[in-house]
């Protein structure tokens, strides 16, 4: 009986992971990578506001993930990536759009 329940749970978990596509942890990884790239390009000096926005959203994403509010974590990760890109863009352009 226990084995059956366990196998059902594992199957359900795998199918859920497959259906959702990108997982929260993957979003968080991507956000962290984008933030790292922004830092390496010097955005923390040349575009401090944009870089800090990205950093703040990444922090929120991590907090949300730790509170099991995965939707918020994904949304915040997306925002973080968006702001990291803005920071990189501003760093290389030198002016605000």
């Amino acid at each position: 009986m226990r084995k059956i329940i366990l196998s059902i749970l594992i199957f359900a978990g795998i199918s859920f992971a497959q259906s959702s596509g990108i997982t929260t942890s993957e979003y968080l990884d991507q956000a962290r990578d984008a933030l790292k790239k922004a830092y390496e390009s010097g955005a923390h000096v040349k575009a401090p506001y944009e870089y800090s926005k990205a950093s703040a959203y990444y922090s929120i994403a991590k907090e949300s993930a730790s509170n099991f509010s995965l939707d918020n974590a994904v949304e915040a990760s997306k925002k973080s990536i968006e702001w990291s890109l803005k920071a990189i863009e501003k760093t290389f352009k030198g002016v605000e759009k």
Binding site: P48, Y49, E50, Y51, S52, K53, S55, A56, Y57, I60, S69, D71, N72, E75, A76, K79
Partner: peptide
């Protein structure tokens, strides 16, 4: 800029009722 961005982001998130 850093502190302002953090304050603004947290406020945006809070205003969104937990959603960003």
């Amino acid at each position: 800029p850093q502190e302002f961005a953090y304050a603004e982001t947290y406020l945006e998130t809070l205003k969104g009722g937990g959603k960003t």
